[in-house]
Design a protein around this nucleic acid. Structure first.
Length: 252
DNA sequence: TTCTTTCTACCGCAAAGCAG
DNA sequence: CTGCTTTGCGGTAGAAAGAA
């Protein structure tokens, strides 16, 4: 089927993309600032246009048909390009007073935020940064829902509608308190690492790290006996480690 | 060629009905 | 009860036709 773009209402693609995200006519309508009935009518036109139901009611949700799934990525990418082109035209960092929501865990904040703030003060002095503590699968969901503008994290996979850029690579190290019984003069062995009792902070939504995943692949598991909260991580972790002979593995 | 009027198609709304 | 669809209605914009 070939569509004549002269007669094609591109707003229908925005509606389609919103339906893919919201998975509901009422929610999609609300997101676009129109009534549920108007959204239903838009869906009707989409159905006529593509000669396919596109979304079918499954329980409480409107699930996409195979045809809708086929269209989802190309439509989403096209809209992203259009938005980018429109934004480029008028975006002036020196004039912008936007608030950017950035998802990152405490460690990334500590490492990157000072430099980021310093840089922004020069190139875009009026923007505001709001850091959101996200982790695990939630990161991508936050991005897809537009709840954050950017996530700084480690990703193994992201959906096509999300842009991904590698910033840097890191090595992992384990730190022990002075005179820890498991640490000798030579390099740390896997057995000693597994025998040690660990302290580790998991951000909200994250239940394992790259270390846990690597161990899992070997059929092994480390012995985490303390999972502190974020403030405790920064303030108290070193003290607990020293007092109780604990180990902390982290990216460097 | 320009302006005005009429027609037509489309969109969104409210309300009612239906389904899970 | 919530959410989706359908129907009927009014508003709006664009196309077509006619007059100056």
């Amino acid at each position: 089927m070939k569509h004549n773009l002269n007669k094609f209402d591109l707003n229908l693609l925005v509606a389609f993309d919103t339906l893919m995200t919201e998975r509901g006519v009422t929610r999609a309508g609300r997101a676009l600032g129109i009534t549920q009935a108007a959204m239903s009518n838009t869906l009707r036109r989409l159905r006529e246009l593509f000669d396919d139901p596109l979304f079918v009611k499954t329980g409480a949700r409107m699930e996409p048909t195979p045809r809708a799934l086929e269209l989802a990525d190309p439509v989403s990418q096209a809209l992203r390009e259009i938005r980018k082109a429109l934004d480029q035209e008028r975006f002036d960092p020196m004039q912008s007073a936007r608030t950017y929501r950035i998802g990152m865990i405490d460690y990334a904040s500590a490492m990157l935020l000072p430099q980021l703030v310093k840089h922004l003060r020069t190139v875009s002095p009026d923007v505001t940064i709001e850091v959101v503590d996200v982790g695990g699968e939630e990161e991508v969901l936050h991005l897809e829902r537009g709840e954050v503008d950017l996530v700084l994290s480690r990703f193994q996979w992201v959906p096509p509608k999300v842009s991904l850029q590698r910033l840097f690579s890191m090595n992992y190290v384990a730190i022990f308190c002075p005179n820890h019984p498991l640490v000798g003069d030579g390099p740390l062995t896997l057995d000693a690492f597994l025998e040690a009792r660990h302290i580790h902070y998991y951000p909200r939504g994250m239940d394992k790290t790259v270390v846990d995943e690597a161990l899992e692949e070997m059929g092994k598991k480390r012995n985490i006996i303390v999972s502190p909260n974020q403030y405790c991580t920064i303030e108290v972790r070193p003290r607990i480690m020293i007092e109780h002979h604990l180990t902390y593995a982290f990216s460097k």
